[in-house]
Write a protein that binds this DNA or RNA. Sequence first.
DNA 1: GTTATCTTTTAACCGCCATTAGAAGATTGC
DNA 2: GCAATCTTCTAATGGCGGTTAAAAGATAAC
Lengths: 224, 224
Amino acid sequence: MPALKGPPGSGSHGSPGQGQSKSERTRERLLHAAAVTLSRLGYAGMRLVDVGEEAGVQAPAIYYYWPSREQLIEEVVTVGTVRLREYVAAALAAAPPGTPALDRLDIAIDAHLRQLMSESAFAHAVIRNISQLPAAIRSHQIVEERRYAEIWRSLFTEAVDSGELRSGLDPDLAQPLIIGILNWAAEWWSPKRSSIDAVVATAQSIVRHGVAAEAAGASGISGA
Amino acid sequence: MPALKGPPGSGSHGSPGQGQSKSERTRERLLHAAAVTLSRLGYAGMRLVDVGEEAGVQAPAIYYYWPSREQLIEEVVTVGTVRLREYVAAALAAAPPGTPALDRLDIAIDAHLRQLMSESAFAHAVIRNISQLPAAIRSHQIVEERRYAEIWRSLFTEAVDSGELRSGLDPDLAQPLIIGILNWAAEWWSPKRSSIDAVVATAQSIVRHGVAAEAAGASGISGA
DNA sequence: GTTATCTTTTAACCGCCATTAGAAGATTGC
DNA sequence: GCAATCTTCTAATGGCGGTTAAAAGATAAC
């Protein structure tokens, strides 16, 4: 009975694959393959054979790293949610203090969209599957998701408090509607269709005008 | 070898269930059950047992009406797309001639959201599954979807031509982004959370301000 | 009330896929 | 280069679920 690896990658997703053991790299390759396959075929449709194929490995090899298919999926969606949250949080944290709420909203939109469209199949896998995931698998993910939602909630709260949000707009409805703009991009966008920059800019423009108080200008932040 | 029913419901989805034979009603019940189950469990996760259970029938009974699981799903997604398109098209057709493009946009948003949130599990099933459906199953659906997309494209074209769309906004990007606001509502909205009317009004408000040319007023049409 | 047809059920069948067992290949320390 | 461990493979196993077969229940016409 070989001692199963604890999850070593849990904190090291900054710079992908250099100074790790072969085993660690295989594990990451499998996790990534699972994310890709999961977003293509869905929760019930993802076969371990597909994952193995995507990673260049036979299916049973997966059991060396995870005790079950369910655990693998659980890690994919948890990692996907965590990375998305951390990416957006980091972008916001990098903004100088005193940045207006609407500019911070632009930053969050930029980060969320980029993470979704280019950075990782993980966020993609989460967004396409949460609604169909058995509750048992979401136990960890759901915690992270709530933490992420909290970021957006506070963005809107800031905007309300500073008077930047158009009055009469319910922030508790506006927020999920705006998220919809971003998340749905995972369904239709492809690099052939347009540049990421163009999508980000258009989304920012629509959202800013869509929620800003009447007086607000149309400017944005620099091109981050 | 009992002659399989041709699809009798193909044109009669206006007023649900009164003057039909028991068989026709069972077929509709099964189709609806399939839509519900499909949106809950996804393409690969939908079991015929679940569909049967939802409809109060044993699974093999399904084969009296459809030759295979795939054909059943194909009908669900096709019907879902057709109904959505027809519902939105009808709402737009009811607008008086000369209605400004942005007001027509409000109408389309209203219709799309209502169809999605209350009218039918069908649109729901489509939206949650298109990306994961095998191409073979989408052959018919995809045609209807293109026709539906054409409605939205022309809405935006009208808005551009009449100068109601904010200049600098790419309508080919704005359109799918706006659709995202609507479709994603299927993921988060529940009747416990808010009224449909509130969601519709908020979405309309965000979209109107989001895409309107600077001079445009914030008014809408009457409440439907 | 009997017969022909329509509808639904129960009881297999069969293939697919997660999982397990156990053997073979790497890898590393010595 | 040899042994211990780590990693991956090939070859079963077992259950689940789509599908088929054939019988049993409705239904309607006469």
